[in-house]
Write a protein that binds this DNA or RNA. Structure first.
Length: 275
DNA sequence: TTCCAGGTGCATA
DNA sequence: TATGCACATGGA
């Protein structure tokens, strides 16, 4: 019997409100697997099995509240898209990937995953994150949770290298020490700039990784992670510029509290179409 | 073989 | 404060 058939609870999400393929493959999450009948989604100590039906997605999990928050179901994305589509540059990306929702992911997993993401590709990041789960995390059903901070503290630099973290391995060991007693779990209450200063003070976290963590774990939407793909977007659709700090400043100034949403629609559009 | 991938840290000026 | 280089590693 498959482990996910033992999950205790379920709820549905209408396909009008989400496109799961777009939401999972747009680069915001590394811990999911597409299987024949649907998706397995992992976050921190939880997981869900999601089955696609004609009109909606059936989410089976143990912790319904966790996954309703995870999929950001209290946010009205129609209103967000109505606002963004007024910008000419957003019309095609929203038409193409309008089913994306920003996930509210486990903070610790997001921090570690996006430090691994630096100068890396999504396939390899995914493999490294799953290696960490399978070698150091708690067993949940037939699967593995992301390691807790206590479990992460036991991982050596060589372990991280074996996981494929490469030259980021010593930074990860240092980062985990810094996270202990930092109170990072409660930083969501901080103003965006205060939170950013706290994050970039940690090992392995620069401005771009901090923006990703703020958007995907702390729910801050007045941020605009600028990576190699967004640099291409900016040069294709705005103007020629290689200064990522300047690109970020201009895009946040343009999209304000909708920046994080705009970023995901643009990122997905650029990456899927290799424009 | 070379380039690229959800960049960051560090030395130098 | 700004610039430039080194850093693992696998796929295209």
């Amino acid at each position: 019997m498959q482990a996910f058939t033992k999950l205790k609870n379920s709820f549905t999400i209408s396909k009008k409100d989400i496109n799961l393929y777009q939401t999972l493959s747009c680069g915001q999450i590394f811990s999911y697997k597409q299987i024949n009948s649907g998706y397995l989604v992992f976050s921190g100590q939880e997981f869900a099995y999601i089955k696609e039906t004609i009109g909606d997605y059936l989410v089976r999990c143990d912790n319904v509240d966790y996954f309703k928050n995870f999929f950001d179901l209290n946010t009205n994305y129609d209103k967000i898209k109505e606002t963004l589509v007024q910008f000419e540059v957003m019309k095609a990306p929203i038409e193409f990937g309008g089913g994306i929702r920003i996930l509210r992911q486990d903070i610790l997993e997001t921090i570690i995953s996006f430090v691994i993401s630096a100068n890396n590709n999504i396939k390899r990041i995914t493999n490294t994150v799953f290696y960490l789960r399978e070698h150091f995390g708690n067993k949940i059903g037939n699967f593995y949770a992301f390691p807790t901070l206590i479990q992460l503290e036991k991982i050596t630099e060589q372990d991280f290298r074996s996981a494929g973290a490469g030259y980021r391995s010593p930074q990860l060991v240092r980062l985990i020490k810094e996270l202990k007693n930092s109170g990072y779990e409660r930083w969501g209450q901080l103003e965006t700039e205060v939170l950013k200063n706290k994050l970039v003070a940690l090992s392995g976290i620069g401005p771009k990784v901090a923006d990703c963590i703020m958007l995907f774990a702390y729910g801050k939407t007045d941020v605009f992670p600028v990576d190699t793909w967004i640099e291409k977007v900016y040069n294709n659709f705005f103007q020629k510029c290689t200064d990522r700090k300047e690109i970020r400043r201009k895009l946040v100034d343009k999209f304000k509290n909708f920046s994080g949403f705009a970023q995901q629609y643009l990122f997905f559009y650029q990456r899927e179409n290799k424009l």
